[in-house]
């Protein structure tokens, strides 16, 4: 039983991190109808920014975390202006391929700067500490920190999207871009805002994932893959769906690795994806019209 509880804890922590990564993708798709594969590299680069600020400059983790969010938010805006705005009226496949190109470019850039051979640890608060429940259950402080951050991030995100004027403009654009424009909403500003938030969420995920272990150039791929499955599972464009799907996938992944076999962990997300596509293509919280 304690082993099961331990895996639930690990799975919750992992799933929360994935949910943050997926929320950025969900937001982009929900408002802008684009799947930005470069998001995986924003996660990775966010990790490096946090590394530079915390380990390199010796500043507190939260400073590094904030820096990662801001830097990747700005990177998101740059991407919007330099790539997606230009390709806005082109087919979705063009945008997808362009984002793949950006993915490769950012990956090579990171390799050139930091190389591949070294691990880059991020100094996290309470890194070595843990709460012990009985003899067998351990909750690392670092995981508590990431779970707490995730909850805070989603609370702020929920507030921005559902309780502010900015959020209303984003939702209005998502529901009907043409109507929103006719109502005086500046589409370009909304797009830049959405890309900023999505990038910032990627940066946040990178700082947290990197904080648990270390930062490396290939760290964006697995979260990207999982995030894509999460947004399909949770419902394209749904923030609530991203949280729940992230948690479910994170926990299922851990339980599978532990109880079924270490080689089978990767099977779970794809099995879930397959089932969802067949049974409920709009995902858990997606609208019927928004199929994957």
């Amino acid at each position: 039983m304690s082993a099961f509880a331990q895996q639930l804890i690990y799975g919750t922590s992992y799933g929360m991190n994935l949910a943050v990564a997926a929320a950025g993708l969900a937001l982009l798709f929900g408002v802008y109808r684009v799947i930005n594969l470069a998001h995986g590299q924003l996660i990775m680069f966010g990790g490096y920014i946090a590394y530079v600020v915390t380990t390199g400059l010796g500043l507190h983790f939260f400073v590094g975390f904030a820096a990662a969010m801001v830097a990747m938010g700005v990177a998101g805006v740059i991407l919007e202006i330099s790539v997606f705005r230009i390709l806005q009226r082109r087919p979705a496949t063009d945008q997808l391929l362009a984002s793949l190109g950006v993915y490769m470019m950012i990956g090579i850039l990171a390799l050139r700067i930091w190389g591949d051979f070294e691990a880059r640890p991020i100094n996290m608060p309470g890194e070595e500490g843990a709460i012990l429940l009985g003899e067998d259950i351990r909750i690392d402080f670092a995981r508590i920190v990431t779970i707490a951050i995730t909850i805070a991030v989603f609370a702020v995100l929920y507030f921005v999207v559902y309780r502010t004027h900015l959020g209303r403009t984003m939702r209005a654009t998502a529901q009907g871009p043409e109507t929103a424009t006719l109502m005086g909403i500046r589409k370009r500003e909304v797009a830049a805002l959405v890309f900023f938030i999505a990038g910032a969420l990627g940066g946040a995920a990178g700082a947290m994932l990197g904080g648990l272990f270390n930062v490396r150039p290939d760290m964006g791929f697995q979260p990207l893959l999982m995030a894509l499955i999460i947004i399909i599972f949770g419902g394209m464009g749904s923030l609530i769906g991203a949280i729940i799907a992230g948690l479910v996938l994170g926990i299922l992944y851990n339980l599978t690795v532990f109880y079924v076999g270490s080689k089978l962990g990767d099977l779970v997300p794809f099995a879930v994806l397959l089932i969802i596509l067949m049974v409920r293509p709009q995902g858990l919280f997606g609208l019927p019209g928004r199929r994957a």
Binding site: Y10, Y14, L209, L212, F213, Q222, P223, V257, F258
Partner: peptide
């Protein structure tokens, strides 16, 4: 990115 389940 998360080695915990494998080490567990």
């Amino acid at each position: 990115t998360d080695f915990a389940p494998f080490v567990a």
